[in-house]
Design a protein around this nucleic acid. Sequence first.
RNA 1: GAGCCGGUAGCUCAGUGGUAGAGCAACGGACUUUUAAUCCGUGGGUCGAGGGUUCGAAUCCCUCCCGGCUCACCA
Length: 507
Amino acid sequence: MHGTIRAMHDPVHHTLEEESQLVQIRLQKLRQLRELGLDPFAIERYETTHPLQAIHDEYEQLEGKTVAVAGRIAAIRKMGKATFAHLMDSTGKLQIYLKADEQGEKYDLIDLWDLGDYLGVQGFVFKTRTGEITVHVQSFTMLAKAIRPVPFPKEKGEQRWYELHDVEQRYRQRYLDLLVNPESRQRLLARCRMIREIRRFLDERSFLEVETPVLQPMAGGAAARPFVTHHNALDREFQLRIALELHLKRLLIGGIDRVYEIGRVFRNEGISTRHNPEFTMLELYQAYANLEDIMSLVEELFRHVAERVFGTTVFEMHGVQVDFARPWQRIRLMDAIRERTGLTEADFETLEDAVRAAEKVGIYVERKDTIGGIIEKVLEKCVAEHLQQPTFVYGFPIDTSPLAKREPDNPRFTRRFEGYLFGKEVANAFSELNDPLEQRARFEQQYALRQAGDEEAHPFDEDFLHAMEYGMPPAGGLGIGIDRVAMLLTGTDSIREVIFFPQMREG
RNA sequence: GAGCCGGUAGCUCAGUGGUAGAGCAACGGACUUUUAAUCCGUGGGUCGAGGGUUCGAAUCCCUCCCGGCUCACCA
């Protein structure tokens, strides 16, 4: 922490004079361009007729026509008095071709080009004798210069050489990763498209997207340690939200019957391949809907996202295939535990029973654990890995579900399910508790746990109770960890691969 | 937090005690339909940081920094 503060107040200033020979050469080229009155950084605008991919897609109509395109130089092949290069933009790549006798003196400017520079060109579309669609350049302008070498790989068809492999550099300099590694780009763009399709799906169903506070007096709605910050003018402590739940429920109380938020939440916990301190949650609430309605919604949501973003409902990970065209399996939590461990509800009757049961299946129990906490540990350690096919596990213990309605005929458990996919939890949903008297009692229980040393027990939120006392409709609620889902649907084991700028130590 | 592995040129990597290397990239030259262009030539390094052992350390030892993986933690 001290290091961070020092870095903020006393940054190291680098001068380009200290940089490598490669940078010096590029700076020299920039100076030459400026002396010629061709300062690339003076350019503001370059009017293009097509994105690069469109030249390929519309070749039939464009052949022989004049077009203007722009992009980064991703490859150059200069062969004396003829030069080929590839431009790259966000849609794709396109080859360009220049001849010395047509360019005259300007042909020498090619010597001032480097990989990574931005170029705008105008010319006519043709096919080379090897059949590659190409723009025969008549005029060109450098639109910006890269004064550091951009590590574009050599490519031949699908093969690539010398790409940027170093994982640390890929994360710290994601812009380079995006430029040179198409898989990274595809994976991260898929995440963005998933979020877009989730919005479309919910908007089509009349859900209203809202924004609720990140800075909260008391972060609730989940069990996690919060980040703490300070508001100077008010001279008081705030916490960064760990969930969206309690404010969205206030909106439900306020008459917004279908409401959702896709937003960043913050949990002050360890960093791992599956945990980033800030991550993206979807939470939605639907008045007058029950748990089964939410299950159907989840099935439809995954199917929609799969089809729209990936063009298929079939996904594979570690050799397991799933199909979102089929309904999810449904199993009661205690039944799933019995199937995998032989333990039954009777083995979790008292805390002593539960501790003994946990030891039987090799689970380490902490002093703060409740019966429900132990049951959930058994789920995580003994059952979850077997839930490869999309599965709803329902009937969660009451003491780990302080915001969910009880099961009417089994009051130790709640109307709550978790969705599992490829052995990982991807969704969490309840029939929302809307009885303010019981909610108060649940908060009392959580308060007692907190007093007993459980830092993650739910805080006693009097303001939220007050809101609920004005009347909250029966409702189904859902939370989905977007990053986890993105991992599973893009087939990656690291959350850092689906977050543009994952949290790193100071480097 | 623990264990294991790693950090060498712009990029990808080799180099286990004896003058820091290769390919690509860069630079100079040849080449007017190439596409990992080709051919000839040249330059380029705080070997993550600091300390130690040694006549001599990228290499062995210690401490630290950064990263990856596994475990722990994590509804």
